[in-house]
Nucleic acid binder design. Structure first.
Length: 343
DNA sequence: GACCCGTGGGT
DNA sequence: TACCCAAGGGT
């Protein structure tokens, strides 16, 4: 059984020497804390998202909206456009709802307990614990994918994910302590991200091998064990690039719920396994100019792109450059394909 | 617990 | 190529 206090001390020492410098992180060793607003914003952006992808969004958001009160005052469409390309758009809707709740109910000040944080929109168990630990230095059990992997290896957990979650959470809780709780959470994530990596862990650089059960087995990369996932189905659809006499593009606002909810989009058919009918959103001359491929979390998609000319009151007519910036990636691809013309 | 929800990089 | 994976949350 790994010795928890020794491991904890070893990882904090490692963190003091190897902490990553990140835009939302106070300089390690400075004794400073990051403002709750910046911790919260970064944590939401980092949900299922890599650091390199999220970082430029974080810089743009904080430059444009320096406080949670500034963010709370933004119009929905402006916020969604600023989030375009980052994915998981429910996060953007919840981000705004959360900012408005903090600016309103909480007087512009983030609550400092896990329980109150957890009650905010878009803040789940992980994010509530992370904000409590990192922004307020409260001893919270911060468990993300990195922490699950590190725990599964330290203790050579033989239960496969996702069933192992409660056990991994219990193990992570053994390390929670009032001494440097914010640094502990970030140290664990830095280790998981840079050393205790999913595919080829760098055990030679790890400060915890002395107490790691998976390392003793000689095959640490086998952990965490996992149950197999179902295959991803493929769907087909049509996307319509409709332009008016001024060259503007017809956009629609998608319903608030479901895929790409609340985002601007091109008019499309349904997306289904069987080829959907070609039913353009306006009469006139249409021609197919090609297709684009896109992969979502639970299906992949081939979108046939059609170009036509027309008018209509049901659309938001937008200059192509403006449209591209506000669109989620699948539509940005389709728009670029449409504007490029036939092969 | 199962399913839905994006995107881009790594292997 | 076809996966896997990332500082998850909501329903």
């Amino acid at each position: 059984m790994p010795d928890v206090p020794s491991l904890r001390a070893a990882l904090l020492d490692w963190y003091d020497a190897h902490a990553r410098r990140l835009p939302w992180r106070a300089a390690p060793g400075s004794g400073q804390r990051t403002e709750p607003y910046r911790v919260w914003l970064s944590e939401v952006m980092l949900q299922q998202t890599t650091v390199p992808h999220a970082a430029p969004y974080f810089e743009r958001f904080t430059a444009r909206w320096p406080t949670v009160t500034d963010l709370a005052a933004v119009e929905d469409a402006e916020l969604m456009a600023a989030w375009a390309g980052l994915g998981y758009y429910a996060r953007a809707r919840n981000l705004l709802a959360c900012a408005r709740a903090v600016a309103g109910t909480h007087g512009g000040v983030f609550p400092d307990t896990e329980a109150e944080l957890l009650a905010l929109p878009g803040v789940g168990a992980y994010t509530a614990a992370a904000v409590a630990a990192i922004a307020f230095d409260r001893p919270a059990n911060v468990v993300d994918g990195n922490v699950e992997r590190v725990m599964s290896r330290l203790f050579a957990v033989e239960i496969p994910l996702p069933a192992a979650r409660p056990e991994l959470r219990r193990l992570a809780a053994l390390f929670v302590d009032a001494h440097r709780p914010g640094d502990w959470a970030q140290a664990l994530m830095d280790l998981g991200s840079g050393v205790c990596r999913p595919k080829s862990p760098l055990c030679g650089q790890c400060p915890l091998t002395f107490g790691c059960e998976a390392w003793k087995t000689g095959a640490p990369a086998l952990y965490p064990l996992k149950t197999k996932k179902a295959a991803r189905p493929h769907r087909l659809g049509h996307a319509y690039v409709l332009r008016d006499g001024a060259g503007r593009v017809a956009l629609v606002r998608r319903p608030d719920k479901g895929l790409l909810g609340g985002m601007a989009g091109l008019p499309t058919s349904d997306w289904s396994v069987a080829a959907p009918a070609f039913e353009p959103p306006a009469a006139g001359d249409w021609r197919a100019v090609g297709a684009v491929e896109h992969v979502f979390t639970h299906f992949s998609l081939t979108l046939t792109v059609h170009v036509g000319r027309g008018d209509g009151a049901d659309f938001q007519w937008t200059a192509p450059e403006t449209a591209a910036k506000a669109l989620p990636t699948v539509f940005r691809k389709a728009l670029e394909r449409g504007l490029a013309g036939p092969d």
